[in-house]
């Protein structure tokens, strides 16, 4: 049973990490609490639903298209809500507030338009079979999530460390004013970060919607609290940290539910969060995160 529980934990943790990747990037680089992130997650899932149900696309076509769609939305919403706030002295509070209002409007508009029902992607989009390896069961969708999470982490790290764009983004995360003075087009770099975050959120929505078979307008909202825990424990903007923190959170939650009490599952996540904040508020994996990303 322990082996299965550990696998359950890693898989759950992979979904947390997948959700948190774009969130931590947005948070770490743009330095604002952007509560609209969860909406891109829902939007990606709904886009994939339309693409697969109405246009009959397969998962390999629908996944990138939905991700790009969510990314474009992120850029648009970011531009509408946040550009004029960046210059303000109280940008942190104001952006929290404006994205709070924005996300309320977006979720409820989406619910009014599409209805509150739970939907699912067409059955058979991914094989529903599960494999049994050494007594441990795992499904195709779960393997897909695990693979996608690792792949996206690798791609993001390569982008951040190995490209000029990555350098510009890291410079911006460190010192936005200085980056501007050094000739980095910060407006364009912010838009790109929004786009990438939106794409990651959208892709996460598709994959997690596929795994749990449940797509509904508020699905992103329900992930937000776990998302906060992961990005704080992992360190803001720390991509590797998000992966480690996500998986650790998943494993701890599953072990708590499996061996102590399922009622405590959620409380443990937040107890860890509070403990980490008290002892290492810069996240478990150090500070000045984007420099090392």
């Amino acid at each position: 049973m322990l082996a299965q529980q550990l696998v359950n934990g890693v898989l759950l943790g992979a979904t947390y990490a997948l959700f948190a990747l774009g969130f931590t990037l947005m948070f770490g680089v743009l330095r604002v609490i952007n509560l609209t992130y969860g909406f891109y997650f829902s939007a990606g899932a709904f886009l994939s639903l339309a693409l697969t149900r109405q246009l009959g696309l397969g998962i390999w076509a629908a996944l990138p298209l939905a991700a790009i769609g969510a990314g474009i939305m992120a850029v648009g919403i970011d531009w509408l809500l946040l550009t004029r706030l960046r210059r303000r002295a109280t940008a942190e509070l104001d952006s929290l507030m404006v994205t709070l209002g924005g996300v309320l409007a977006l979720y409820s508009a989406m619910t009014a338009w599409l209805g509150p029902d739970i939907r699912r992607l067409p059955p058979g989009l991914v094989s529903a079979d599960s494999f049994v390896i050494a007594g441990v069961r795992i499904t195709t969708a779960q393997i897909l999530i695990l693979g996608a999470t690792l792949l996206l982490v690798a791609l993001l790290l390569a982008l951040m460390r190995g490209t000029r764009l990555g350098l510009a983004i890291r410079a911006m995360a460190e010192k936005p004013d200085a980056a501007g003075l050094m000739g980095i087009n910060t407006a364009r770099a912010s838009a790109l970060v929004s786009f990438i975050s939106g794409c990651l959120g959208g892709a996460g929505g598709v994959l997690i919607g596929l795994n749990f078979n449940a797509i509904h307008p508020y699905m992103g909202e329900t992930m937000m609290l776990r998302g906060f825990v992961v990005i704080i424990v992992g360190g803001l903007g720390d991509i590797r940290g998000a992966l480690i923190a996500g998986v650790a959170l998943g494993v701890i939650e599953v072990l708590t539910a499996g061996y102590i009490s399922s009622g405590l599952k959620e409380a443990v996540a937040f107890a860890i969060l509070v403990a980490v904040l008290w002892t290492r508020p810069q996240g478990l994996f150090g500070r000045a995160v984007m420099r090392r990303a």
Binding site: L81, R84, L85, V98, G101, L104, A105, L106, S108, A112
Partner: peptide
């Protein structure tokens, strides 16, 4: 139908 949406939009406009 539009209550929550308007609620959100009003908050956005007020902050902006």
């Amino acid at each position: 139908q539009v209550r929550l949406t308007l609620n959100g939009v009003i908050i956005v406009l007020a902050v902006l």
